[in-house]
């Protein structure tokens, strides 16, 4: 069901944990709140779940104002960071809990619990206790418990944080498939930008109690609206320069053409590491410079290079590597750099 948050403010003493948040999540959408710890994302989640009453603003679910409604009447399913499974109840009893609270008939409860277990592929685990399950299985039980009562909204609070990488990746895709299949409106909280890019329909980047930018993952990555977003989402080279007559003077690269209608003055330009090219292929590029390789990190499908331009500026480059490619340039070697000006993004000031 559609979620709409308007003008939410929450103060803790003199500190505003939420400084006026507006957010709309469409029906069936998977929206991620991405932000560092202390950005206010957990407070926002609590306000939506009903564990926190905002000082100002409103939370609406499917058009109904639930700002002051207690959590139990919101019909919102939530998966907690540590899962918060009830350790004294079996897996099946955990999943049955929300149905029993709704006084569903016993036969229906049994049927829906079995169905939920099937959905998360834990069919034969109903009689186990949570502590007899692995972390990933516990996480799936928490998910089953959160969706078994057909909630109007699903909230996920950093649910993959405690899992190892491989398991995390497979669960991310599993949750995403499940969410699409059930067309569940979902709000996902994370500080992991990679996770946000993998899972989301849209991402809202949060910092200092406000949403800094909201948009499609590709949009945020290619055209961040602020230095913070550029820095937080992915790796970045942020180049400072002065614009005059549609051209910026960049240390090492010389004059670089800017997009049309760029006013004169100070500019910050974003160049993603994968847009920076190295070696012979740079000859044809309009923007070129020379640099020394400070270090090279081999990552399998690519290599990450830290480079220093002659002027002293440091830059990151990411080279895609095929098995037949020569090894990346070693530490201390001199290389030619270059990029195409259309790969530059002007980061708005402020």
């Amino acid at each position: 069901m559609q979620l709409s948050v308007t003008g939410i403010i929450r103060r803790f003493g003199p500190v505003a944990a939420l400084g006026g948040v507006d957010l709309d999540v469409a029906e069936g959408e998977f929206l991620t709140i991405l932000g560092p710890s202390g950005s206010g994302k957990t407070t926002l989640l609590k306000a939506i779940a009903g564990f926190e009453i905002p000082d100002e603003g409103a939370v609406r679910l499917g058009g109904q104002d639930v700002t002051l409604a207690p959590p139990r009447s919101r019909e919102v399913g939530m998966v907690f960071q540590n899962y918060a499974l009830f350790p004294h109840m079996s897996v099946a009893q955990n999943i049955a809990f929300p149905l029993e609270m709704r006084r569903r008939p016993r036969a229906e409860v049994r049927e829906r619990v079995a169905e939920a277990l099937r959905l998360v592929e834990l069919d034969s685990f109903g009689d186990r206790l949570p502590r007899q399950l692995s972390g990933g299985q516990q996480q799936r039980v928490a998910l089953a418990r959160a969706i078994v009562f057909n909630p109007r909204l699903l909230l996920l609070d950093e649910p993959f944080g405690a899992l190892d990488r491989k398991l995390r990746e497979s669960l991310q895709l599993e949750v995403r498939r499940l969410q699409r299949r059930l067309k569940l409106t979902t709000l996902f909280i994370t500080h992991d930008q990679e996770e946000a890019l993998i899972m989301s329909d849209r991402i809202a980047v949060m910092d200092k109690g406000r949403i800094q930018q909201i948009g499609l993952p590709g949009e945020l990555y290619a055209r961040p609206a602020s230095r913070f977003v550029a820095d937080f989402l992915g790796e970045s080279n942020l180049l400072e320069g002065r614009a005059r007559n549609g051209v910026a003077e960049l240390a090492g690269f010389g004059a670089v053409p800017l997009p049309p209608a760029q006013p004169d003055g100070k500019v910050t330009l974003l160049l993603r590491p994968e847009a920076l090219r190295i070696g012979a292929s740079t000859a044809a590029l309009p923007c070129r410079a020379e640099a020394v390789v400070l270090d090279t990190v081999f990552l399998g499908q690519s290599a990450k290079l830290r480079l220093q331009l002659d002027g002293g500026t440091e830059m990151l480059a990411r080279l895609p590597l095929r098995p037949s490619d020569p090894p990346p340039p070693p530490e201390g070697s001199r290389v030619a750099l270059g990029f195409a000006p259309e790969d530059l993004h002007v980061v708005p000031q402020g």
């Binding site: 564990f51 207690p70 959590p71 019909e75 907690f80 540590n82 918060a84 809990f97 609270m101």
Partner: peptide, 12 residues
């Protein structure tokens, strides 16, 4: 957090 979880799942 378990009490919050229970409240969120519909328990008074």
């Amino acid at each position: 957090a378990q009490e919050q979880a229970a409240a969120g799942l519909g328990a008074a």
